[in-house]
Nucleic acid binder design. Structure first.
Lengths: 240, 240
DNA sequence: CTTCGAAATTTGGCATACCAAATACCAGCA
DNA sequence: TGCTGGTATTTGGTATGCCAAATTTCGAAG
């Protein structure tokens, strides 16, 4: 029957058709999620020691929506580890401890070094070349722009580009999430400036190793590069 | 003032006090989250090709709650990647593609090999010894229990124990999440049985490397062990 | 002025109601 | 019989209201 067939056609996900039920208009839930995440991103989380807490009703009237979709968005961000809803107290923005930040950098080292390994056997020469081109721009920025935020952003962008060479969207997604948290302490610390000099040569070596398709070396360079950052944070950054 | 001081005390999160606002009664949201996750765990996701979809109203009356907390729980599980709410269609349980499963195993390899590295410099001899004791039990199970599910569970438990030796709760949390997805295909494939023979010796070697505090070797063994699983799935498992 | 406690207020959790979109159903027509 | 068009129903998204817990306020007692 045509009805059942049509139904079947909808139920089965991908049948070669590249459309996805046309975006429709984004739900309030998604919009609230994006808005809140954006707000948290631009928030100087570690700027003060006061607990930063949000108010559902305030947010809902600011976004012009009811509390329900806001609560769903909050539930998602809570699951993601950015917020934490404490009953009768408020929704507070989670501040990571120094130990947690270090764990994140270590996990980052694990994922990115694996990405480097995978990239050596999967990435095309062209893709790797793009990485080198990106590195040049990055290197120029290093000299010109002294502002810590911008350097940090460029630095993370380089690493993200490297990770995407692995072809694994999962590695990309997981590290993006980690970067979000690590980036949040950029206001508080200047650890990047300190590492700027040797970052440049580190990055160059990494690119060379990938170009040479040397999986072990690429993996090791990336791992050590990032673990060095972890040690640096451990000994020179003061949070809590 | 005593009032302000008391207030301050509440606002500051951890002041060494190890209690957490006494559990109270768990919210419907958390209970719904746990119930749904449990249900999904015990669900044979890859048993059929039909799209598995849930109904909010059905779930809510089954759990004796309204739709609101259920929707919040669904939003969390959606963020976690287990569910996906499609407007006007239902909440469907996400079925991972083979490529996604392989990416998960690769990420797992990355995280666990890092855990092994960290364990070599952080875990106490006693903790490592416990790992060996665990391994023995595991080895016995290998012989006795032929059922694939049980073997898979024991296998994952071993790896979880290893990861916890790193002392990083983040690595533990991230891999737990990955295991959840990988475990879900246990009904469909018997890849563990296939690898059982050499898993035992692999695990023994890993333990020896950690005992010897050989970071590079421990890392490499764990990585290769898990990447071998990825290759195996790639060539012998059929999904989609 | 400080302390104590009860009332008022705030706030988050939950339930319910409503709406619009999308599907399912069904009668009528070819 | 098979197809079509329109109506009924289902369903997820959102708004609103209520409630209990927790906090704050404020006045009275010491």
């Amino acid at each position: 029957m045509s009805k059942a067939a049509l139904n079947k056609r909808w139920q089965n996900g991908d049948n070669g058709l590249a459309i996805e039920r046309l975006p429709a208009k984004e739900s309030f839930k998604s919009r609230a999620y994006a808005a809140l995440k954006e707000a948290i991103t631009n928030m100087n989380i570690y700027g003060s020691d006061e607990p930063m807490l949000l108010d559902e009703r305030d947010i809902s009237e600011r976004l012009g929506a009811s509390r329900t979709p806001i609560r769903e968005a909050v539930a998602m961000l809570e699951q993601e580890g950015l917020l934490r809803a404490v009953p009768r107290r408020g929704i507070l923005v989670v501040r990571r401890t120094k130990a947690e930040i270090i764990e994140m950098i270590e996990a980052w080292a694990a994922l990115e070094s694996m990405a480097a390994r995978l990239a050596t056997s999967r990435a095309s020469d062209e893709a790797i070349a793009e990485l080198r081109a990106f590195f040049k721009e990055f290197d120029l920025n290093r000299i010109e722009r002294e502002r810590c935020d911008e350097y940090s952003t460029a630095n993370i962008a380089f690493h993200q580009a490297l990770i995407r060479l692995s072809g694994s969207s999962l590695l990309a997604a997981m590290t993006d999430n980690l970067f979000f948290h690590v980036r949040a302490i950029r206001h508080r610390t200047i650890f990047e400036m300190d590492r700027a000099q040797r970052s440049a040569s580190d990055h160059l070596e990494i690119i060379q190793a990938i170009e040479a398709r040397d999986a072990d070396r690429a993996e090791r360079l990336v791992r050590d590069h990032t673990l060095r950052l972890a040690r640096h944070v451990e000994s020179h950054v003061n949070l809590d």
